[in-house]
């Protein structure tokens, strides 16, 4: 049983390290802010979750605490990047796009409303 858990732990830890690397590499390679945020959030969230789960499996006494940290990361990471995206749009960081930018009209409307008041 213990060796099974150990090898499962090895598997999850390697998977986690690989995804952490992919996340950072995505941040390095992508062409604009929003696409960087996409790559960064998804890969680093799953990478950290999987690495921490691997440690929890290899060291069963720590399991519950690692689960708490996994839940915290799963909730906090999307929220912080969502806040960042909104903040960046307000500083006139336009997304790189050939097709559609539906959010633009909302910020324009808000600006006009503020000026009227």
């Amino acid at each position: 049983m213990e060796t099974v858990l150990l090898y499962l732990g090895y598997f999850f830890v390697s998977l986690g390290a690989a995804f952490l690397f992919l996340g950072a590499f995505g941040i390095f390679r992508m062409p604009d802010f929003y696409t960087r945020l996409q790559a960064g959030t998804k890969s680093s969230t799953l990478g950290a979750m999987s690495l921490i789960l691997g440690v929890g499996l290899m060291q069963p006494e720590w399991f519950f605490k690692t689960v708490i940290i996994i839940i915290f990361i799963a909730i906090s990471n999307p929220i912080s990047s969502h806040a960042l995206a909104r903040g960046a749009y307000k500083t006139h960081q336009k997304p790189l796009t050939d097709t559609i930018d539906a959010y633009e009209e909302v910020t324009e409307e808000n600006k006009n409303k503020n000026e009227e008041e």
Binding site: L20, G23, S44, T45, G47, A48, I69, N77, S80, L84
Partner: peptide, 9 residues
């Protein structure tokens, strides 16, 4: 943000 996630892990 990404660095801090890496540091936690």
């Amino acid at each position: 943000d990404n660095l801090s996630t890496i540091v936690v892990a």
